[in-house]
Simulated scan of single mutants.
Amino acid sequence: MVEDGSIPTVFVHGIRVSGSMWGPVAALVDGRTAAPDLPGHGARYTERFTTQGAVEAIVAAIDEVGGRAVMVGHSLGGFLAIATAGRHPERVAALVAGGCTIRPRGPFLSAYRLMARFAASSPAVADQLSARGFRRALPVPIAEAMIAGGVRCAVMPEVVAAISELDPIADLRRYPGPVLLFNGARDPFRADERRFLAAAPNARLALVPRRGHISIMAETTVLAGLVTTAAASAVPAP
Results as ranks from 00 to 15, higher is better:
227 V>C: 06
33 T>I: 06
97 A>G: 07
77 G>M: 03
105 R>F: 08
215 S>A: 11
118 F>G: 13
195 R>N: 11
168 P>V: 10
211 R>H: 13
134 F>N: 06
157 P>E: 09
71 M>H: 09
121 S>R: 14
62 I>F: 04
157 P>R: 09
134 F>I: 01
187 D>G: 08
43 A>F: 01
204 R>T: 15
172 L>G: 10
122 S>R: 14
136 R>T: 14
158 E>R: 10
2 V>F: 08
180 L>F: 07
212 G>K: 09
91 R>N: 03
50 T>P: 08
96 V>Q: 07
11 F>W: 12
83 A>L: 00
180 L>H: 11
10 V>P: 09
93 A>Q: 11
20 S>C: 11
190 R>H: 02
33 T>L: 00
129 L>N: 11
92 V>C: 12
161 A>G: 08
77 G>W: 05
6 S>C: 05
6 S>H: 13
184 G>W: 09
238 P>A: 12
10 V>Y: 08
218 A>Y: 07
203 A>D: 02
87 R>H: 13
23 G>N: 13
5 G>P: 03
190 R>C: 12
197 L>S: 07
25 V>M: 02
106 G>N: 14
9 T>H: 07
18 S>D: 00
177 G>C: 08
218 A>L: 03
238 P>R: 12
57 A>L: 00
97 A>V: 12
211 R>N: 05
157 P>C: 06
124 A>N: 10
201 P>G: 13
212 G>A: 03
202 N>I: 00
9 T>V: 15
56 E>L: 09
13 H>W: 03
65 V>C: 02
72 V>E: 07
112 Y>F: 13
226 L>C: 06
9 T>A: 15
106 G>P: 00
41 H>F: 00
152 R>F: 12
37 D>C: 01
86 G>H: 08
1 M>G: 14
133 G>P: 03
103 R>E: 15
66 G>M: 07
60 A>S: 14
138 L>R: 10
195 R>W: 03
205 L>A: 09
168 P>Y: 03
110 S>C: 06
100 C>K: 06
169 I>N: 04
205 L>D: 01
115 M>V: 10
175 Y>G: 09
153 C>R: 14
77 G>H: 06
200 A>W: 00
155 V>T: 14
44 R>Q: 02
14 G>P: 11
212 G>M: 08
99 G>L: 05
156 M>F: 12
21 M>R: 06
136 R>E: 15
23 G>S: 13
40 G>K: 01
12 V>N: 05
202 N>W: 07
26 A>T: 06
47 E>K: 00
39 P>L: 05
78 G>I: 10
176 P>T: 09
104 P>F: 12
231 A>P: 10
135 R>A: 15
186 R>Q: 15
46 T>Q: 11
21 M>F: 01
88 H>T: 07
207 L>F: 11
123 P>F: 09
1 M>D: 12
46 T>H: 11
83 A>P: 08
92 V>D: 08
168 P>D: 04
216 I>N: 10
196 F>W: 06
10 V>I: 01
39 P>E: 05
16 R>W: 12
180 L>D: 02
176 P>F: 09
38 L>Y: 05
177 G>A: 05
143 A>D: 11
18 S>R: 00
145 A>C: 03
129 L>G: 04
178 P>S: 12
177 G>F: 06
198 A>Y: 00
131 A>H: 02
15 I>H: 07
81 A>P: 14
214 I>F: 09
126 A>F: 10
208 V>S: 04
34 A>W: 02
63 D>R: 11
109 L>F: 02
